[in-house]
Design a protein around this nucleic acid. Sequence first.
DNA 1: TTGAAAGCGCTAACAA
DNA 2: TTGTTAGCGCTTTCAA
Lengths: 342, 342
Amino acid sequence: MVTIADVARHAGVATSTVSYVLSGKRSISPETRQRVNASVDALGYRPNASARALASNRSNVLALVIPLRADMHVPVLMQFAAAVVTSARRYDHDVLLLTADEGAAGLERIQQSSLVDAVVVMDIELHDERVPLLRGLDLPSMLIGTPLDSDGLTCIDLDFVQAAELCVDHLADLGHQDVALLGTPSAVYERQTAFAHRTLEGFRSAARRRGVHGVETPCEPTHEAVLKTVQELLTQEPGLTGLVVQNEPIIGPLLEVLRRLGRRVPEDMSVLAICADDVAEGQSPRLSSVSIPADEIGGRAVDLLIGKLDGLAPAPTTLVPAVLTARASSGPAPQPDRSTTA
Amino acid sequence: MVTIADVARHAGVATSTVSYVLSGKRSISPETRQRVNASVDALGYRPNASARALASNRSNVLALVIPLRADMHVPVLMQFAAAVVTSARRYDHDVLLLTADEGAAGLERIQQSSLVDAVVVMDIELHDERVPLLRGLDLPSMLIGTPLDSDGLTCIDLDFVQAAELCVDHLADLGHQDVALLGTPSAVYERQTAFAHRTLEGFRSAARRRGVHGVETPCEPTHEAVLKTVQELLTQEPGLTGLVVQNEPIIGPLLEVLRRLGRRVPEDMSVLAICADDVAEGQSPRLSSVSIPADEIGGRAVDLLIGKLDGLAPAPTTLVPAVLTARASSGPAPQPDRSTTA
DNA sequence: TTGAAAGCGCTAACAA
DNA sequence: TTGTTAGCGCTTTCAA
């Protein structure tokens, strides 16, 4: 193993000089810098992470708390996780993976052992039990998701309220009077998961504001559940012409079911999704959607967290504006069928 | 922060005694042990990870290299990852997340900085470019997946050759003469990903051995692709009565397509899947399947890796035996339809 | 602009 | 069975 002393000897300087060249924390003459850098390269030196952490009280490691629940759609979680890792690397940080089932104990363990400098927590509930702990912890933290009481915490998420509003507005603008939110599995609502709850909220208020009739239903991610849910929806709401889906795995089955039931998209039924762009574009017809910019959110979460580590005090909650992209799955509301009533 | 010196003072012993009580590396009198443990609890002491790592040359952190490819089915990856994390925690280790796109550079960085004690690598290809590096690295490593040349490496995986063989045997035993392997997306074969390639191998050899006609086709994970692939298959192989699926996301669409094409499962078409048990049981009809025991494989990977860290030399490659569970989707081959030929 | 040296908190010889 | 102490490799004061 090559140490900082080896480099110092090789370059003919003191170890502190090598350290300062590497950290840039004090000015170094160009010649010295060059000589040191050359030695670093020649010897293939890389600082020992533990020694550095011990001396500087900074591990350059971020913890990522990721849920492993059966009801969560894993690919979306992984997109966030990947964004966090990629972004952390840009700040020369690594990411330690914590599963949410270790819970509060895991966070305390991590903090007390000084294993990580900060923590990113995903899958936040409105009344998340980890929130008080996080508030007390003296580790900087970043929540991806917004609890009801975010006092003293830093949160970031897509503005799901607005996401739902954009969907309802889009449908209302197209003349739809009767719309439904086809949501996440019911367990997600029961836990009061923030993103699902905020979406519901936005859906309801927008429907009220626009004077359209809106109903909501959860849906489990199986083909049978989709079929049953859609059939029930159509029975209870015969005039339904607009659907907002927030449930990635059922998107395929949903389109299939509509086809089978003879509802053309968008002629008979407009479908809007809240999902990743590539998922929306992979369907046929291509889905009008509000995208979930996991890369951006995960990336900014890390940016803000690193900022906190550097002493900045970021705004408590960042809501990333929702953007709706109209594609092929939404169109004007069909004329009410008068042939049977006339 | 409470240090080992605080504990030592509180208990009236030397710091080394505290250290030894905690590590169990030398015998301690019951009274001393008790006194030290009481002080540890009283003060809420937890060893500083960096100091421990620096002094002992062990970080108690494992790296997990996880692929983030579009063609991989993420939920399965996460099952492995979760198993690795859970299992690592049992050995008091944590898990550092590395994305595969950092590649060889990431592994070298991790090693040279002594950030981790060992590494678990997933998503192995037959000619994986990381294999030579891993061989040269002086970090213990564990591959989940089996490259062609695994000399000097430790690998573990489901016995996918046997998995395919079990499927073909099961179908052949039921009288099927004409079977197909509906595989992963073509990119997975093109990369020569080990699990897909091994399955193909087993499928071919078993078909040959049993004298049944076997064809193989990749399949992209979209509803359209499934429909097209199945139609082509049925056109080219009109006598097809058995299907082996190794492609989790298309299982739902596949059953749907078969239904739509008027093929009853299992009366007209037997379907076997190589997938997680809960996925197989979540379908209707419940699928006969060879399960992918991600928990077991991930767990044993860590067991073996910890063993290596403790100086044990494990067998180079562990193939977890495949187990086929017959459920409702496989049955006797239908009698050839003679009504049109007679 | 640079160097010397005191720790950071722990482990593991070495001693008793 | 326990204590003393020399490091582990780095950062950062303090001094020049």
